[in-house]
Write a protein that binds this DNA or RNA. Structure first.
Lengths: 116, 116
DNA sequence: AAATAGTACCTTTCTTTGCAAGGTACTATT
DNA sequence: AATAGTACCTTGCAAAGAAAGGTACTATTT
């Protein structure tokens, strides 16, 4: 049993937003994996390669993302991702859902604060 | 492969807040499982028994929760849960973490909106 | 008294998924 | 030729949500 329950719960929170955040990032510019990792890091949302690559693949095969290969100035070629139409549609819904969720949590906080 | 990617991502978001929300609910009053399910439902956070019971057990064995048996006016006895000291400490940290996370997401939204 | 319905607890089984670790391959530099 | 840096991906493990099924207590109906 893992008894770092606190870190665990924090990780859970972060995970929940992962896909949403990645779609957000890709919605602006075409980016490749390292760009995404960098932006998530700047936003305090730590993610590693072993998480990101499979997730990008899943989103690709669900047709939310497309990519094209672009040669790098130095090193191997890169996969630059962008949102498909379906991806944009999806992101819009996740935006709404995120708003609803934060409101829900806010109401729970309000109804349960400072009674202990 | 499950290709309801949207529902999936929404579920992910909800899951991320689950433990936090449950601790919030228990922080106010002693409650038993059905109370928790009811409150989560009211907050649009659907959860089922098969999710809740194992989670409560985990929180118990991590010593964030304690319970006592209370006889029901009709039916089998109930486990009424309350937060331990450790549980309250934990909740405080999750509160902070939730604030930080929502700020992070907010900044991502700000930096990536309406450029498509 | 037996059967049924309602409530409350819990477990088994399956699937998804995050992540550490390891692997391949391309380019540039030493 | 060897090393370092970058970029892609996969393998294997563990955690955890959820559907379905199980046990047991009480109250009501037949």
């Amino acid at each position: 049993m893992n008894d770092n329950q606190l870190e665990n719960a924090k990780a859970q929170m972060r995970k929940g937003t992962l896909e949403y955040c990645i779609l957000l990032i890709i919605s602006k510019d075409e980016v490749y994996a390292s760009d995404i990792l960098k932006e998530l890091k700047q936003a305090n949302l730590l993610v590693v390669e072993g998480t990101l690559y499979p997730l990008l693949s899943r989103l690709k095969s669900s047709e939310l993302l497309s990519y094209n290969w672009v040669e790098s100035p130095s090193g191997p070629p890169r996969k630059y991702y962008s949102l498909t139409e379906k991806g944009r549609e999806n992101l819009k819904q996740l935006n709404e859902n995120w708003q609803v969720l934060t409101e829900s949590v806010k109401s729970l906080i309000k109804n349960h604060e400072k009674n202990n």
